[in-house]
Nucleic acid binder design. Structure first.
Lengths: 149, 149
DNA sequence: GTACATGCAAACGTTTTGCAGCGAA
DNA sequence: TTCGCTGCAAAACGTTTGCATGTAC
């Protein structure tokens, strides 16, 4: 889904932070869940469920269920950079917005705030508060735009 | 894929237009292909391959292959409005840009040119020529933004 | 007659569901 | 001692591929 969970996003600093949040919802810290959280905390970019599972030798199903649970808690988000698997990050940790070129496939990772002017424009014009962290902006990069002429 | 075909998009007015284009590439107008084209010409919004196939009682595979071929020719595009199947339209016919709310799921269909200011902003800042017809802009609609306060 | 296109079957990659048993609280 | 969580198996979903047959040109 494009649908985000009905809870506000929460940026978590460390495992203890995350555990607190889980506890508030009556959720446990199983070994698998701890490992998934540690992996996401250590990651410097978004990871697929498959990557997480095989790194940790965990069952893929279990990883998907944990990512889903964490996403439901507002701790995790996923992005679709193309037609491959969804890529997961902790909120505020390796989470980015993206600009991808549909000609050459180049992915430009944007710095936090780099899209604020765009976001503000959209907000003024449409009232929507947009984010390009679930679906990237898609277009032609400068090189490919030139090449098209 | 996020990848678009290596040909410029072509807006087609009627079946004859489309056939001309196909001919130029040595492609044929089979019964199935004609039906797919007619369906897209008659549609007022984007359609999934499944919808096209079951409306026409055509094999799903064949519909996918035709949509792919037509997309390769620059006649067709598809959009991903969420996690469901891709939705296909003729270029310039039911093709739009989209703004979707990730809280309530509302899809706002944008008029042609409505995003030109945003597009221009992105072009100036990043040099990218963006389009929100493959992936929509995702965010919170005014109502859901308010509710979050 | 020559390909291109078709239908059917089977596979694909990603994600979800069902279920019996394990283990965190 | 609960009941949330696990692994495994199987299915669901959208999409693609292989192949023998059919058909537009």
């Amino acid at each position: 889904m494009t649908r985000s969970p009905d809870v506000p996003p929460v940026a978590v600093e460390d495992l203890a932070d995350a555990v607190r949040l889980l506890r508030e919802r009556g959720l446990r810290l199983s070994t698998a869940r701890r490992l998934v959280l540690e992996t996401l905390l250590a990651a410097d970019g978004p990871l697929s469920a498959e990557q997480v599972a095989s790194d940790l030798r965990l069952d893929l199903t279990s990883v998907y269920r944990n990512l889903e649970t964490l996403e439901q808690c507002g701790l995790v988000r996923h992005v679709h950079l193309g037609h491959g698997p969804g890529l997961y990050t902790l909120v505020g940790r390796g989470e980015h917005e993206y600009l991808v070129c549909d000609s050459c496939g180049a992915v430009r990772v944007l710095a936090p705030g780099e899209l604020d002017a765009v976001r503000e424009g959209v907000r003024r014009q449409f009232g929507y508060e947009v984010r390009f962290g679930h679906f990237p902006m898609v277009g032609k990069c400068p090189d490919c735009s030139d090449r098209a002429r």
